[in-house]
Simulated scan of single mutants.
Amino acid sequence: MNADVAAALKELTNTLEGIESVMDLEALRAEIAELETEAARPDLWDDVENAQQVTSKLVHRQAALRRVTELRQRVEDLEVLYELSEDEGDDAGRAEADEERARLAKDLETLEVRTLLSGEYDPREAMVTIRAEAGGVDAADFAEMLMRMYLRWAERHDYPTEVYDTSYAEEAGLKSATFLIKAPYAYGTLSVEQGTHRLVRISPFDNQGRRQTSFAGVEVLPVVEETDHVEVEEKDIRVDVYRSSGPGGQSVNTTDSAVRITHQPTGIVVSCQNEKSQLQNKAAALRVLQAKLLARKKEEERAELDALKDSGSSWGNQMRSYVLHPYQMVKDLRTDYEVGNPEAVLDGEIDGFLEAAIRWRRQQQTVA
């Protein structure tokens, strides 16, 4: 085996060993064994919510272990593949080994980024809210484009999603939308998306075809769990019901099933209109309220500006630009990571941005 290939294989092995060390495979196997014991209890489904949490956690922990175990096997198989191709002078086998090495390096890089998510709430599911900011109808249209981008990203990864609320703008697009991405580490992964996104394009809503700059804000919060102790007193909330509406204010329900909750001590207002019943909408709205109250609680505890929630101005908080005219480019203003295919990015291909931002954030934390 030539020196370059040997060095490359050594680097892959070292990266994998680092990942295995951070993941603590022995502890992971012990946790899986405990969850399997709990999942086998005959009375598990007496508490449906707890049963769902246990089985979901078990499935995801097993998948994490399987993923790193398979990578270990691929690294070992790759070394054998190179040795066989070299012994037999098989150029096609060598080319196949080179292709697998490139795939393996990419898969290890992706898993390595996951190990950087070590924050208190990083393993949680994510509650995402998108709001149109400056830019009128173009901003509302941009907000809808961003919502589709994140939902397509989730779809690409087979992550379930649940839309809680969509407030449509009059002419086109969204005033705001809130949705849940139900996957482990969704919060840790998407929290780097928080901030103001900027779109530059020829406005489809301008009769004179002028270039328009518009803004949309993205807020990402961790989903609240029972251990967070975020209590919402019934006396502290006002619940209003109304009829769900669609684009252009069109009524989409014949009953007042949509729910708006106002948390009177803080003034926080949340709403949900996408479930079938008023009861379901209220439960979903309470989940959003709890996530927002948790964010506020952590801000107060840490005494840090915007620790979990960033609601800065359009101009002072920009984190990514999407330029469709006069050239094609999407660029992260923190990491300088950029691609020249906005269409693909807006169709959910954002993993490169996420990985670069997660690495950048860890670097900032290390420096601090």
Rank of each mutant, 00 (worst) to 15 (best):
16 L>S: 07
203 S>M: 05
116 L>C: 02
307 A>K: 02
152 R>G: 03
20 E>P: 05
249 G>M: 04
367 V>W: 01
191 S>I: 01
107 D>G: 00
196 T>I: 13
316 G>W: 04
82 Y>C: 02
8 A>Y: 02
48 V>A: 15
211 R>D: 01
113 V>P: 00
113 V>F: 05
223 V>Y: 03
38 E>K: 10
90 D>A: 06
346 L>T: 09
348 G>W: 00
152 R>N: 13
296 R>Q: 14
204 P>L: 08
125 E>T: 13
11 E>V: 14
37 T>G: 11
69 T>I: 09
265 P>E: 07
245 S>T: 15
231 E>F: 14
215 F>C: 02
281 N>I: 09
210 R>K: 13
208 Q>N: 14
302 R>K: 12
316 G>P: 03
232 V>Q: 10
366 T>L: 12
24 D>F: 03
216 A>S: 12
254 T>I: 12
95 A>M: 13
264 Q>H: 11
113 V>S: 06
86 E>A: 09
316 G>F: 10
6 A>L: 14
288 V>I: 15
246 G>D: 03
229 H>A: 14
354 L>H: 05
65 L>S: 12
130 I>S: 01
303 A>R: 14
138 D>S: 02
32 I>E: 07
9 L>R: 14
89 G>C: 09
315 W>I: 15
325 H>E: 11
9 L>V: 10
13 T>R: 15
5 V>G: 08
366 T>M: 10
108 L>W: 00
213 T>S: 00
347 D>F: 03
206 D>A: 12
368 A>F: 05
54 V>S: 06
197 H>C: 07
90 D>M: 06
295 A>G: 10
293 L>F: 04
71 L>E: 13
6 A>T: 12
174 L>C: 12
310 D>R: 14
186 A>P: 02
28 L>W: 10
94 R>V: 12
